[in-house]
């Protein structure tokens, strides 16, 4: 067993030692990002643009883009459902592509241009996708909703750009925004409230309006 006398070991040794002994790491299987060698957080300066506004911040190198948005910039529209890239609640658009903001560190986004749900539209100035979600009741609790909306906006751009998916039958023809394509491409965004049928109707309406 690793006792408190072993403090001269560095932390990595301690973690390894603890894992092999009766004193188990209390949280098996979770992220174990470490601070710097002196124990203090390593901070790094990062400059990025969020919804058209530039920000320069010193951030802990362990901070995700998601937590930078939510905790530092107080842009809480982007949601944390899992923190592990498993749910899509944290979807934002970075340089035109949708990503899970929990899966990228803030320091990796130097110079990036980020669009969050707050940047797409506001309560009195809704983006067409936001309006379509309201009209088709494409949500219930609302917690997955910003992620669904950011994802669907970027997803339609991917289709326009001709990027194929798992269900694209003909790789040579232009990709069509069919329901099957949309369902496949939106499958990284979980809605436990189960609004899928309505979400697809909302996106379809936006597609049809765009012509």
């Amino acid at each position: 067993m690793v006792g408190s006398d072993d403090l001269n070991l560095n932390r990595r040794d301690l973690m390894v030692g603890a894992g092999a002994c009766a004193a188990m790491p209390a949280m098996p299987g979770t992220a174990k990002a470490q601070p710097g060698p002196d124990g203090n957080p390593v901070e790094f300066q990062v400059s990025l643009t969020v919804n058209g506004k530039s920000h320069t911040r010193n951030v802990d190198t362990r901070t995700t883009l998601l937590d930078l948005l939510r905790e530092n910039l107080h842009l809480t529209g982007t949601k944390k459902g899992c923190d592990h890239g498993q749910c899509g609640a944290c979807t934002v658009i970075v340089d035109g592509r949708r990503i899970n903001s929990c899966l990228t560190l803030a320091v990796m986004q130097e110079g990036s241009s980020v669009t969050t749900i707050e940047g797409l539209g506001q309560p009195d100035n809704l983006h067409p996708m936001q309006a379509a979600f309201i009209k088709h009741d494409g949500y219930q609790c609302g917690y997955c909703t910003p992620g669904q909306i950011c994802s669907s906006v970027a997803m339609l751009e991917e289709i326009k750009a001709g990027i194929p998916s798992h269900v694209t039958a003909d790789l040579l023809a232009p990709v069509q925004p069919t329901e099957t394509e949309m369902r496949e491409r939106m499958s990284g965004n979980i809605c436990r409230c189960g609004a899928y049928s309505n979400i697809v109707e909302a996106i379809t309406e936006v597609v049809e309006r765009q012509g």
Binding site: G77, T78, K79
Partner: peptide
């Protein structure tokens, strides 16, 4: 009727517990 809270939920302005800065 459309939900009256819809414009908050769809714009990320509906505050959930962890977000009450």
């Amino acid at each position: 009727t459309d939900r009256i809270d819809g414009k908050y939920k769809t714009t990320g302005t509906a505050p959930y517990a962890y977000e009450r800065h």
